[in-house]
Design a protein around this nucleic acid. Structure first.
Length: 500
RNA sequence: GGUGCCAUAGCCAAGUGGUAAGGCCAGGGUCUGCAAAACCCUCAUCCCCCAGUUCAAAUCUGGGUGGCACCUCCA
């Protein structure tokens, strides 16, 4: 498998430190609000990477933190009259709702910064002891120039950074490029005791400390958004490697940004959407599908039209799954002897309510194998997690399945040949196998089903009696309930759609 | 100023040396009591422009044009 490594700016063959095992860390959200779609992209794509690695047989230990202490956390919790913990708890709970909806599996560990204060302090102490950090008035700064490799991830050099600095430099720092590891307490701020007095950790140090705490000194994959390359990830490398003397992470993966209606998403333009906003109109899975239909490193645009197109595309996938399930359900009704011999397939009594299925040996499509799609899927996903191609493989599979079913129906009138349950089952299995790697087709129906089935039975009775008025009345009624019917040769198929 | 990225059909989007995937939209057809939905088929002689390398380029090289991002808390 190849992964694009920001360190080398090339695709590299992925080789984990320990065969069969992958340790990965991804920067999680600062929990001061619902997360927005820009946050959602790394969550979704790196969840997909994690799923894929597991699919390929790796045992993955995945750590994603919650940043629950920073300026915004302090300010917003205060505005709400909540303690820092109460405030964090609230938005972590909201995170889980959205994450679950988006099909993001929980990481192996979700550490909170405030629960790793001892580890953070220990790491800072090590850096001070090794001469990579210094204390001034209760603040502790990292001495950037003391770390030789600084800039190797972002490919910036210190001179450029210094000349390009656009912010006011804290005069107390020895060097403009130094950054805070520990911040002394200001009045009324939450604080923890430390060798430098009461204070709180800086942002960058928490990830170094938690990654080390849960994954060890060197991890396989570290990921996050493009904008984290500098300074966040660059600083993480400096802190971790200055302390341990070992490489921090071997593969650095960064996802591209999301634009809104072709404009940069930003607070100042007031054009950012939370996931919670979007799901008012589109299902969670539409968002996931949309994100995965482009390569994770490409910038993507976000708009209503694009989401609508994604919804329609995803529906096609669901249609195939539901159709296969429907046909399989009908197939179960066939007496075993019939499907064994295929001889009585023309029996009117059987055709009445069930699908006719020929024996496995009499059908040409029987010999076909869907494993070619699995091979193609793996080949494209092995190439830097090309989910856009992965989705394309899914659609090719769907067309293949649909075509076989359609053609066998045509044959059915003359030769009673239709796709056998065995093939349908195989098709459904491969469809679900590949979809689940992408975290798609996870949606299931609800309790509405019983009521709907009853109405459909009533309508079928009316149709049998050629009571079209009654039949249409029931169909309209179902339509009002959001249920659409399809009269197929195998019976009535229904779907609760188009959803969102 | 520094560092990168991108430019493929009406829209979205893969493909990075061997003769243009996939999705949406649109058009045609099949199925059906009617219908809806669904399904199938069709839909880029060509990949921003110019020059070059090559038997062969959307893909490599040089130049140009246009768009974007990071360098500042931000996924």
């Amino acid at each position: 498998m190849k992964l694009y490594n920001t360190l080398s700016r090339t695709k590299e063959e992925f080789v984990p430190i320990e065969p069969g095992k992958v340790r990965m860390y991804s920067c999680g959200p600062t929990v001061y609000n619902f997360f927005h779609i820009g946050n959602a992209r790394p969550f979704i794509v790196f969840d997909t990477l994690r799923r894929y690695l597991e699919y390929r047989g790796y045992s993955v230990k995945f750590v994603q933190n919650f940043t629950d202490i920073d300026d915004r956390m302090i300010q917003f919790s205060r505005n709400e009259g909540l303690t820092l913990k109460e405030f964090a708890d609230r938005y972590i709970a909201e995170y889980w709702k959205d994450a679950e909806g988006l099909g993001i599996h929980p990481a192996t560990v979700h550490p909170r910064a405030t629960e790793s204060i001892p580890e953070i302090i220990a790491l800072i102490e090590t850096l001070v002891a090794k001469g990579h950090a210094y204390e001034i008035d209760g603040d502790v700064y990292f001495s950037t120039r003391s770390f030789d490799g600084y800039g190797k991830l972002s490919h910036y050099n210190l001179e450029e950074l210094e000349s390009g600095a656009r912010i006011d430099v804290d005069e107390r720092k020895r060097d403009a490029v130094d950054f805070a590891l520990w911040k002394a307490q200001k009045p009324d701020e939450p604080a923890w005791d430390s060798p430098w007095g009461m204070g709180r950790p800086g942002w960058h140090i928490e990830c170094s400390a938690m990654a080390n705490q849960h994954l060890g000194e060197t991890i396989d994959i570290h990921s996050g958004g493009l904008d984290l390359i500098f300074p966040h990830h660059e600083n993480e490398i400096a802190q971790s490697e200055a302390a341990s003397g070992e490489p921090f992470a071997r593969y650095w993966l960064h996802n591209g940004f999301i634009n809104i209606n072709n404009e940069k998403m930003s607070k100042s333009l007031n054009n950012f959407f939370t996931v919670r906003d979007i799901v008012q109109k589109y299902d969670y899975e539409v968002i996931r599908f949309f994100m995965l239909s482009a390569h994770y490193r490409s910038p993507i645009n976000f708009s209503d039209d694009l989401l609508e197109a994604a919804r329609n595309g995803l529906d096609r996938l669901y249609e195939c799954r539901d159709n296969l399930r429907f046909l399989l359900e009908k197939a179960v009704d066939i007496p075993e002897t019939l499907s064994e011999t295929g001889l009585e397939a023309n029996s009117a009594a059987v055709l009445e309510n069930t699908v006719s299925f020929a024996s496995d040996t009499t059908n040409i499509v029987e010999t076909s194998d869907f494993s070619v799609y699995r091979e193609r899927f793996i080949a494209v996903m092995d190439d830097d997690v090309n989910t856009a191609d992965g989705v394309a493989v899914l659609f090719d599979l769907v067309r293949d399945i649909n075509t076989r079913i359609a053609e066998s129906r045509k044959q059915a009138s003359t030769e009673s040949g239709t796709v056998s349950p065995k093939v349908l089952k195989k098709a459904l299995e491969i469809l679900m196998e590949l979809s689940s790697v992408l975290g798609l087709l996870a949606r299931e129906g609800d309790a509405l089903a019983v009521e709907v089935e009853a109405l459909i039975t009533q309508r079928q009775t009316a149709r049998k009696e050629k009571n079209w008025a009654e039949s249409d009345r029931i169909r309209d009624k179902l339509k009002e309930m959001g249920i659409e019917l399809q009269d197929t040769p195998q019976g009535v198929k229904w779907s609760a759609g188009p959803a969102k």
